[in-house]
């Protein structure tokens, strides 16, 4: 794997961890239980620390690289929304019921631990970063354990096989998400000529459109029609 690809993975991981921190912080604020609020608070704290760790790793790996390559790996918080790590619809706790949310945490922490193992392998054994990732993996397993404990305590009617069901469902969802993402990229390539054609047609119209007619010079701005969008 090339250095750029490794940076790309670290870059995405930072967004994923920051997104998780915000999800947990939102859950902490939204939940009605003071115990759950505490649990989510601690979880959010860990995710914030993971974000910081991955930022440091990315920074250490990037500062000697060619500027044009690393510019795109700058972290801008708004990327959390544009990249889809936080949904435009809102945080998960705002859109899911509590049971599904806990199941989501339970399964995703385990999946996160698996993906960190892959990152650890990529970074190579026996280095400082690798040890830091091991600690993060331990945290994720702890979060997974806590979610499982909570789940079984408050929803005792659910059997381990049902947890397995949630896990499988989430795994399939994640894989589908990846497949969808790949297809989107593929479809974009196919449809780009069509978009370009549409753009060219619109550009002809835009050239004809005389926007200077709507100039404001010497107008009382307070008198302009408040229903007009132009």
């Amino acid at each position: 794997m090339s250095a750029s690809e490794i940076l790309e993975i670290l870059h995405e991981t930072i967004y994923a961890e920051h997104g998780s921190a915000l999800e947990m912080l939102a859950a902490c604020k939204q939940t009605k239980s003071t115990s759950l609020a505490y649990g989510y608070f601690e979880h959010a704290k860990d995710e914030y620390n993971h974000t910081k760790t991955f930022k440091e790793i990315l920074s250490n790996k990037s500062y000697n690289c060619y500027v044009d390559i690393v510019r795109k790996f700058r972290i801008t918080p708004i990327g959390l929304i544009t990249k889809g790590y936080v949904s435009r619809k809102g945080y998960l706790i705002e859109t899911m019921n509590l049971k599904d949310f806990i199941a989501y945490v339970y399964t995703n922490e385990l999946l996160a631990e698996t993906s960190f193992a892959k990152i650890k392998k990529l970074l190579g054994p026996n280095n400082k970063d690798s040890n830091r990732i091991s600690n993060i993996m331990d945290d994720e397993l702890r979060h997974h354990g806590m979610a499982k404990e909570y789940f079984l305590k408050y929803y005792p009617e659910l059997q381990p096989w049902q947890l397995l069901y949630y896990k499988t469902k989430e795994t399939i969802k994640n894989k589908t998400r990846k497949l969808y993402h790949k297809n989107i990229i593929f479809l974009e390539k196919i449809f780009f000529p069509l978009y370009s054609l549409l753009t060219l047609i619109s550009s002809r119209l835009l050239i004809i459109l005389n926007l200077t007619e709507y100039k404001r010079t010497d107008c009382n701005l307070m008198d302009i029609n408040a229903r007009s969008i132009l």
Binding site: Y195, S196, L198, T199, S203, I207, Y214, L230
Partner: peptide, 27 residues
């Protein structure tokens, strides 16, 4: 809204095809 959408787009038409990606993205 329409002004803020159209003005940069109209400007971009002056730089086609270089500005094609920007225009496609905006539209």
């Amino acid at each position: 809204p329409l002004s803020s959408f159209l003005f940069p787009l109209k400007e971009a038409t002056k730089y086609l095809p270089e500005s094609m990606n920007l225009m496609v993205h905006q539209i």
